[in-house]
Amino acid sequence: MISFNYEVDFKLENEDSLQNWITSIIEYHECEEGEINYIFCDDAYLHKLNVEFLQHDTFTDIISFDNSLGKLINGDIFISVDRVVDNAKDYTVSFDQELQRVMIHGILHYCGFKDKTEEDQTEMTKQENNALSLLSN
Rank of each mutant, 00 (worst) to 15 (best):
I79A: 10
S94T: 15
F59K: 11
V85E: 15
N74A: 07
D90Y: 14
Y91E: 12
Y91I: 08
F78C: 08
Q55F: 12
L54F: 11
F95H: 05
S80C: 08
F78I: 08
D82R: 12
F53H: 07
G75Q: 04
H56W: 06
D61H: 10
G70W: 01
F53T: 07
D76C: 07
S64H: 02
V85W: 10
K89A: 13
V93T: 10
S64T: 03
V51R: 03
Q55S: 14
Y91Q: 14
Q97G: 06
S94D: 14
H56T: 12
S68C: 00
D96E: 09
D66A: 01
G75H: 02
D90I: 14
G75D: 08
Q97H: 11
S80A: 13
E52V: 00
I73E: 05
S80V: 08
V84Q: 09
D57H: 14
N67W: 04
N67C: 04
E52T: 01
F59T: 09
I77N: 08
L72S: 02
D66T: 02
V85C: 11
I63P: 03
I63N: 01
F95T: 10
V81P: 09
V84P: 08
Q55A: 11
K71W: 02
F95G: 07
G75Y: 07
T60Y: 01
I79L: 09
G70R: 04
K89L: 13
I62S: 07
I63H: 00
N74S: 04
Y91T: 12
N87D: 15
K89Q: 14
N87A: 14
K89G: 08
D57L: 10
V84W: 01
E52M: 02
S64N: 05
H56G: 03
L72I: 07
V81Q: 07
E98P: 00
N87V: 09
D57F: 14
T58M: 13
I62Q: 13
H56S: 10
D90W: 11
G75P: 05
L54S: 05
I77L: 06
T58G: 04
D96N: 05
G75T: 07
G75F: 02
T60M: 09
L69S: 05
K71V: 03
V81C: 12
Q97S: 00
F53M: 06
K71F: 00
V84S: 12
R83H: 15
V51T: 04
I73W: 06
A88C: 15
F65C: 00
V81R: 11
K89H: 12
D86W: 12
D66M: 01
N87W: 13
D61V: 06
F65D: 01
N67S: 03
V84A: 13
E52I: 06
T92I: 11
S80F: 06
L54Q: 02
D76A: 01
V51Q: 04
V85I: 15
